[in-house]
Nucleic acid binder design. Structure first.
Lengths: 244, 244
DNA sequence: CGATTTATTGAAGAAACTCAACTCGAGTGG
DNA sequence: CCACTCGAGTTGAGTTTCTTCAATAAATCG
């Protein structure tokens, strides 16, 4: 029974844990919190003394620019730790929002540091998780910087599906994706109107369905081709079949 | 005399090192290499067994998309470790190129791991460095996703100046920036032609000079305003006056 | 010096944006 | 129960930003 601590399920997915390690992980206190959709969780400039593992819902990391528009830089789902980096960066550099109702399992930085010290293998895996976040950021720079709208959205949908599948949330090409078109526009840097039209194009080509909080991919190969998608930047521990 | 090992100068900037730590750092073997401009250093898909500290020159991290165009996701200067993440991510997820002639100080992953294990405080600081990279990636997503050309380039120039100043490379508003307009276009996701025209606009407004491998900022406040620049995402250990 | 990048310019076209109106569905409250 | 509101999605039309293509000037390098 490994699921009695949020970090256990996360870390056990990546490696076989020793008895000692399991005990140490269980010693990390967890404080759960519920957040309603569209609530801010942490604000740019905050100095959090704990990080949270997302055990239900979807959050995003975003910034507001001079004109008042907002860019979403990262999306986080079940099992992610959206603010792991605050463990070593004192000041939070972006806002973190709940896109849906969420459950957050907070863990004090002090205990996470202690865990890292006592069990370097676990520390390395937490470090690794932040590096994967960085890799995803890089791919988002590419996506927003180089791909035009249809390709850009296709790529995003591919990523969502693979990550959802890996988190155990997807089945038969369908996964939860409870975001609005306005959210999509802030993830892609496109205007809401253009997102709408691009969605229609993707639907019209029979590639996807999107709505009612769900994403369904009908033609994986087609979407991968359109989105120029390769999953290596996700650094998956093992291959994932997103359509299974 | 701390400058006899590349990691020493890097880490000593962030914290006061103990005798033990200094000895441990000195024990990390360094192998230096020279790379000519426009040479690839590491390729997407590589499995490096060492990382390098950049002790001279400029490198960038980039990817090529389906159409053959290239996006630069990160720029690295003196003191940076562009591939630190390969310490825990087996496969390199992007290409790393030398923009200018460079000197690379390679350090085996095995020794870096040993250092992390024996001196967690140093390990944390290396981790921290990768987190700052991640923060910069996030800001680049914002930059490319939301800001229009003049603002986008202004922001980039502000970042370059602050980072250069912090690395001890800038003085009186001037720093080395030996990149072509084509490089700028790949950093910003703009076409080379548009970069050229935007540069002319910035020059015309008396904000900057750029060319001959150097960047000069004439009106810091103006550039900051235009670029919507705030330096908090760089997580500077201490305030930096980029124009001093 | 010629050769080859790099920078610059003009002009036409495409992708994406803004603005504004309209539809639809899910509440909410009278 | 129905009218109303409010958020989300959709559509049309005109505009802007940026791109592409192609040609020329300037700078750099061997």
């Amino acid at each position: 029974m490994l699921a009695d601590h949020p970090l256990l399920s996360k870390l056990a997915r990546a490696m076989v844990l020793s008895e000692d390690e399991i005990i140490a992980i269980r010693a990390v206190p967890v404080q759960s919190a519920q957040v309603k959709a569209d609530q801010i969780i942490s604000r740019e400039g905050d100095k959090p003394s704990r990080s949270f593992l997302l055990s239900e819902g979807v959050t995003c990391t975003s910034k507001v620019v001079a004109g008042g528009k907002r860019q979403i830089m990262a999306l986080h789902i079940l099992g992610d730790v959206p603010d792991m980096h605050t463990l070593h960066l004192k000041l939070l550099d972006s806002d973190i929002w709940a896109i849906t109702d969420c459950q957050l399992d907070y863990m004090p930085h002090a205990d996470l540091r202690r865990l890292n010290l006592a069990h370097p293998r676990l520390g390395e895996d937490l470090w690794r998780a932040t590096l994967v976040d960085g890799s995803i950021h890089r791919e988002w720079v590419v996506n927003v910087g180089q791909r035009e709208a249809p390709s850009r959205m296709a790529h995003l949908f591919c990523e969502i599906m693979v990550r959802s599948k890996q988190a155990g949330l997807a089945q038969d090409g369908t996964c939860p994706f409870p975001v609005t078109q306005a959210d999509l526009s802030e993830m892609t840097g496109l205007s809401p109107v253009h997102v709408n039209r691009t969605l229609q194009a993707l639907r019209g080509q029979g590639l996807i369905s999107f709505g009612q909080g769900r994403l369904t991919i009908h033609d994986w190969d087609g979407l991968v081709e359109l989105g120029d998608f390769r999953d290596d930047y996700l650094h998956l521990p093992e291959p994932v079949d997103p359509m299974a």
